[in-house]
Write a protein that binds this DNA or RNA. Structure first.
Lengths: 291, 291
DNA sequence: AATGTTATTTGTCTAGGACAATATGCTTTA
DNA sequence: TAAAGCATATTGTCCTAGACAAATAACATT
């Protein structure tokens, strides 16, 4: 069923699969000599699958902190070596036995085992401890394993859905806190990862505090309107490690500038941990425990 | 707190807020004379908020079926008139009393009322009927109200989260069906709307059929890998009315071409309802009831 | 009314250059 | 030795104006 020629992708498809912008792909070609796509008769770029695969690998190394100039020009083998090196690097601390087991359930696609273990932890330690000491480390672990090439993107998708389901069920059993929500949760358009928000929602729920979770990829102007309507005391935004660093400061400044209402802006997640200078009117939450 | 000059946005930000591509924004400027952004000293476009607002309105009209050539050149008042006309258009059928009440709860941000009513319907008619006759029509209704300018994007975000929470809780009470999942659910990268998947998941769960929901925006190559690993009998994809029509056929063909494994591909949702020609190897699900 | 053909509309892609913002490397100061 | 200040290098995003393929609309024919 595999059609050979159809496998080479135009630049738009590559942008989507690699999360590297079109302009960037073209400028890399000019500057570093890679990628070097095929061309149609009319000059349109067609990227063969190997090059797309290598771009994904490059992207992974960049998320680990490498800069384009130091990885894009490298030969295939050198890239593989770099990646392997990082795959061998010790994972932060040693994952507690529980997380290792959970990770195993994820890569083996064993939904039942995953839920059973989570249920055990919940029964033993309660929702707060479950989020802080089991789920948050698990999510971090899976992220690291992905960077090391041991876990695939679709497995993260799978985990995200399972955790959402589990936390929703757990919150429902706790009961939904009544009253006006003092905290609004969301991510900006470039951020598709919503587990951070969900964990915060669970922590708040556990303390009988209502919250409004608008989910991922909410346009700035919509956040402004939502704040006008719901009038929360705080707007909490989550940023994963993959949020484009270039854009972070500008995006936050744009948001704060647009907010006419008096509202605290909280930001958290791996994406803001490395922020150099503080931004006027934005409070950085370093740790989930602070909630 | 509002900074006047900071309000004008560069083209990248406008692309995100309007979901109109950069190239498209520039080509409209050339062809239709709108938008006509300000420029920095170095020629960089800066779109004032009114123009962004008008672009969003244009986008809404296009989602209603208008073509760019017939709306982009129009003056502000004419656009407003067109929109108002469609706002006045009768909503499909008359929304049953239940949906009207639910809609009211959404726009009034009354979480408690929303959940209470859903709970009532669930208790009375069961999960299947709730999904088919209450939630699906509600989602459609909110979409129409949005197109008419009566509901805002952030309210759809709010509803999405609430329905996810509710359905997850309902499914958890039913109990998670054990065993290997015969159906895998996902949306392609350009499709951020995941409620369709969730409704299908709920319908399957109600019939004690397990499923694997990978959620939204799964890259094509990851879908291929996921199918290789989980080996489901069917891969079901959901497309909202906002999925770019130009890309639909090509994206599906790319997917089918890449799938080496024998797996049925099902597609559903408003985005495929208007598909002209069938695509080899793809089955169109016209109705949720078919599940 | 269905089908086939032609014309128009529309989004995405091209090249090569430019610039502002960030990160790095080097020097000076406490 | 560490912090701070400054110069240099790196990097993503934006620019222009033109081109083309795919989808849609309009028209002609069966």
């Amino acid at each position: 069923m595999n059609n050979q020629t159809a496998q080479a992708l135009p630049i738009g498809a590559v942008e989507r699969d690699t999360h590297i912008g079109r302009d960037t792909l073209r400028v890399w070609e000019r500057r570093y000599g890679f990628p070097r796509p095929l061309r149609t008769g009319h000059g349109v770029r067609l990227y063969p699958p190997e090059q797309v695969q290598r771009l994904i690998l490059i992207r992974r190394l960049m998320d680990l902190g490498f800069r384009p100039g130091s990885v894009v020009p490298l030969a295939e083998e050198e890239l593989q070596r770099l990646a392997a090196q990082h795959a061998a690097a010790p994972v932060t601390g040693q994952p507690a036995a529980v997380q290792a087991k959970l990770l195993q359930a994820v890569v083996e696609h064993d939904t039942a085992a995953l839920h059973e273990r989570l249920e055990q932890e919940l029964a033993r330690n309660g929702l707060r401890q479950l989020v802080l000491h089991t789920i948050a480390p698990l999510v971090r672990l899976v992220g690291e394993q992905w960077a090391a090439g041991r876990v695939e993107v679709f497995e993260e998708h799978f985990l995200t859905r399972q955790l959402t389901y589990f936390l929703d069920a757990a919150m429902a059993r706790q009961g939904r806190p009544p009253g006006e929500a003092p905290v609004m949760l969301a991510t900006l358009p470039k951020e598709p990862h919503g587990l951070g928000l969900l964990m915060v929602e669970a922590l708040l729920t556990e303390q009988h505090l209502p919250s409004i979770n608008l989910g991922t990829a909410v346009p700035v102007n919509q956040l402004v309107r939502a704040v006008e309507q719901y009038r929360p005391q705080a707007l909490a935004l989550s940023f994963s490690a993959f949020y484009p660093r270039r854009a972070l400061r500008g995006d936050l400044e744009e948001l704060v500038d647009s907010l006419a209402e008096p509202v605290e802006v909280w930001v958290g997640g791996a994406g803001v941990a490395s922020m150099r200078k503080a931004i006027q009117g934005v409070r950085v939450i370093k740790d989930l425990e602070q909630i």
